[in-house]
């Protein structure tokens, strides 16, 4: 039996020291995903370092954006006045996820690092390259209705389940990290890796590196933004497709656009092809459709998830239409 040690960090330095970059150590946020995975014995850490006491502030940056501590609870972020007023897509994305109880526990850092809900990842009798590297993938030819159509590889088709991250990538959020070699900041779009041949390596984080904060740049037109989540039941379900979008329209012309996709990709998906296709064009349904087509052009369906391509297109069109 693996003895589990629990330590509570008081600041980032003590967190990193306690963690020590060991492969058997995990940072613990709200525990709403990590503890589930421990119960299922998919994660078997020998040490959890509780970082929920760190950086729970949301404050304005000099540039007019927000700096959000990694320990901020999902509920607090969704309800924050500035978030609701200036980044409604983020507030709505968070509120569309999980349940009130879970959002009260879950932290921003933990949400970013949550792991896939692929059924085969959870079943230790099944083959899974993410759980057991180079063992094979039973999802690719299995029951894959919930799986990804973008960013997939022959090794893995599992989706990243976060709603919050979809809004954050659309907002060009930057992740602040603290590691053994110092602090750095990288775009959130660069934090999660595509699975390629190594789906077990999910992020570019160095061993023991800690997410300390998320920074959202100033983006005035994000006041006109939304998050649309399509799922099989009305609440408490992961997205089949979700769209985070902000649109800057003047005189019927799209001046700028931000689009993120969830439920369809192996990482929180920034839909740059769609953005490129629509910026400078008239805000019409036909142009939105063309943008959606551009984004999904290289989507690769599996036996059970082909519907997500058309569903994603329709949801993009509908969401942009609502904002236009």
């Amino acid at each position: 039996m693996i003895e589990l040690r629990y330590e509570k960090a008081v600041d980032p330095a003590s967190a990193m020291q306690l963690h020590g970059g060991r492969g058997t150590a995990r940072y613990l946020g709200g525990g709403t995903n990590l503890v589930d995975l421990m119960r299922e014995e998919i994660e078997q850490p020998g040490l959890v370092v509780d970082v929920t006491g760190l950086s729970g502030d949301i404050r304005e940056t000099d540039g007019g954006g927000l700096l959000i501590g990694a320990g901020v609870k999902n509920t607090a972020l969704a309800e924050h006045r500035a978030v609701r007023a200036r980044y409604p897509l983020l507030s709505r994305a968070i509120l569309s996820g999980a349940s009130g109880q879970i959002r009260n526990m879950a932290t921003v850092g933990g949400n970013i690092l949550q792991r896939t809900r692929c059924y085969y990842f959870y079943d230790d009798a099944a083959r899974c390259n993410k759980r057991s590297p180079e063992s094979g993938c039973d999802a690719i030819d299995g029951f894959n209705r919930i799986h990804a159509v973008l960013g997939t590889s022959p090794a893995c088709v599992a989706t990243h389940p976060s709603d919050m991250c979809v809004a954050l990538v659309a907002l060009d959020a930057v992740v602040h990290l603290q590691g053994a070699s110092g602090a750095r900041a990288i775009p959130l779009t660069d934090l999660h890796r595509l699975p390629d041949g190594h789906p077990e390596i999910e992020t570019v984080l160095e061993p023991g590196e800690l997410i300390t904060a998320i920074e959202i740049p100033n983006l005035p037109f994000a006041a006109r933004s939304t998050y649309r989540k399509v799922r099989d039941r009305a609440s408490y379900a992961f997205a089949l497709v979700s769209v985070a979008a902000a649109l800057d329209v003047e005189h019927g012309i799209v001046r700028d656009a931000r689009i993120g996709l969830g439920g369809v990709a192996t990482k929180p998906w920034r839909a740059r092809a769609a953005e490129r296709a629509v910026v400078g064009k008239a805000a019409t349904e036909a142009n939105f459709r063309a943008a959606a087509e551009a984004e999904l052009e290289n989507a690769s369906p599996l036996s059970g998830n082909g519907f997500k391509i058309e569903l994603a297109k329709r949801t993009i069109v509908h969401t942009l239409g609502e904002l236009a």
Binding site: Y119, Y122, D123, G142, F143, D232, R233, S235, Y236, A237
Partner: peptide
Amino acid sequence: VNHDLAGYEVPVHA
């Protein structure tokens, strides 16, 4: 395959 309450969806209040 979907052998838990996250994968086997039943109606919620909403």
